[in-house]
Design a protein around this nucleic acid. Sequence first.
DNA 1: TACCAGGATATGG
DNA 2: CCATATCATGGT
Length: 331
Amino acid sequence: MSISKSYRLTPQAPYRFDYFQKRVENSSNSYLYSIGENALSRAHIIGGHPVLVHITLDTPSTPNAPVIRLDVQGAHSDARADQAADIWRHMLSIDRPLLPFYQQAATDPVLKTITSDLSGMHLLLDSSPFESTILSIIGQQVNLTFAENLKRSLVELCASSIDVNGSTHYAFPSPEQIAALNYEQLRAMKFSQRKAEYVIDFARGVANGSIDLHSLQGMSNAEAIDYLIKLRGIGRWTAECVLLFGLGRPDLLPAADIGLRNAIQHFWGLDHQPTEQEVREFAVPWRGHESYFTYYLWTALGLARAAQKQQTVTPKAKRKNSKNMAERDKE
DNA sequence: TACCAGGATATGG
DNA sequence: CCATATCATGGT
């Protein structure tokens, strides 16, 4: 007893769907997605059951009149299909026009160039604060390749899946599914003891109601960060990741983030890596769109580094390095 | 072989 | 509040 339902989304231009695809391809969560021609798909658990969502850009030739079709398959009710659609509205930042951000960026020549080069790039967010927190905890301290192995292991260990046309789509596990694991299972997947405890204990807290992620919605950034960092395994960096990628806060400044500091040094030609305090002073004109400036600077630095590498690398070694070049994007 | 990787926590000054 | 040790594993 399941239904299919379609939605039509018309975000404001400019809107570059291909940037989402690139980001998915290069992210450490790419195993959760399938990528097609102007299309993405992914499974989600809704009301305890997996549903499949296809996202298609219906108007690839007219980025000034973007229309995105969303097809939900396997939902057990109309309302649950709507829930899946809402998740994707959030993930694709559909309701966040870029033009106000671009107007703000136009006052600085460096930012104006960067935003022009990446015009139409929206933020790709995580599907929920829970998913965002689990992925961020796993990403702490370890390199991106290893982090991806850990994330995939967790998903394959306990997630629900749907088989469509011979391919398996995993839905990111629910709090209950992760809560039911024991530390030894994750230790066997190369998690450290601590990381296994952080992940499972957090999921158990969410599952038993002692951690209320819904309450984050009504909090200010400072309140939400204060709430999150009281939880074991969540420090400031992780909390900021959750606000930016999980809650989709537009005005979050991860001032201590090494990637942001490197980007500021690079694009403004500073002779030293700016301190956290210097980043805050630097970002005063970004007020209201700090997340967007940060996201664009991360991306632009990744592209600049990739281009630099390509120049210095011999043609023979190019192919070997092409994967690393693609991996530089933040998340 | 060291050292690092998009950290977090506990402990001592 | 700041500095340091510890965690644990894979990549380079």
